[in-house]
């Protein structure tokens, strides 16, 4: 899915890399923070990881997904940071897939706390509320896309509608979801002590 942007970067267009950074910034910061356990340092390490990724992108051949490749760079950058800070990095030399598994397990353990269970429930409720707020055609289109991973063509066939309509419905659904999410966050912010 990132291939079109990666190729654009490889052809010398930095603007395409900006979109990749915007897309993955939150995931990479969260990943790095699991290593460095310092939100401020995580921002710096994540920045360094993206810069390294940009410099190395010239050699990226698409043998793995872009995110898997980026993930590996971020993990290595975080480990280098820990070594430079004279802190012990994880004993095993994790590759992206192993790290993903490990963090999922850690995440499951962490999520067992009441606080994290609450956050998880809130996220689920947010999703349900966001989907409930959509008209049936929009809800169906975005669900088929985001949850079932179907292509626009397949969705068009299933919904018996032109592909342009599918594209438009998915876009409108996203707009409404973002708007709802922002409203909810504003409410949480106001309610917070």
């Amino acid at each position: 899915m990132d291939q079109v942007l990666v190729l654009q970067v490889q052809k010398g267009d930095k603007r395409a890399f900006d979109l990749l950074v915007l897309k993955y910034q939150h995931k990479i910061v969260a990943l790095v923070n699991r290593f460095v356990k310092d939100p401020v340092a995580a921002q710096d390490v994540a920045q360094e990881a993206f810069i390294r990724a940009y410099r190395a992108l010239v050699n990226f051949r698409g043998e793995s997904a872009f995110y898997t490749w980026l993930y590996r760079i971020a993990v290595n950058t975080a480990k280098n940071y820990l070594v430079a800070k004279s802190r012990r990095p994880p004993a095993t030399d994790l590759d992206a897939d192993e790290a993903e598994l490990l963090f999922q397990e850690q995440g499951l353990t962490e999520q067992a706390t009441p606080e994290n269970m609450l956050i998880r429930d809130q996220s689920h409720q947010q999703l349900m509320a966001a989907l409930d707020g959509l008209s049936p055609p929009l809800r169906e289109a975005i669900t088929l896309r985001e949850m079932d991973g179907m292509s626009y063509e397949a969705i068009a066939e299933m919904m018996e509608t032109p592909i342009g309509t599918v594209r438009s419905r998915i876009h409108r659904a996203r707009e409404m979801i973002v708007r709802q999410l922002q409203q909810q966050e504003d409410q949480y912010a106001k309610a917070a002590p």
Binding site: Q25, A46, I51, V58, I119
Partner: peptide, 30 residues
Amino acid sequence: LFEQGEPAPQSNQLADRVSATLAQQPTILA
């Protein structure tokens, strides 16, 4: 919502910093 990721701040500060740094660097070409 769909990837059940951790809540993230609504900020593009990191992307802005990366973009500003890369603006000073040579463009890559595969």
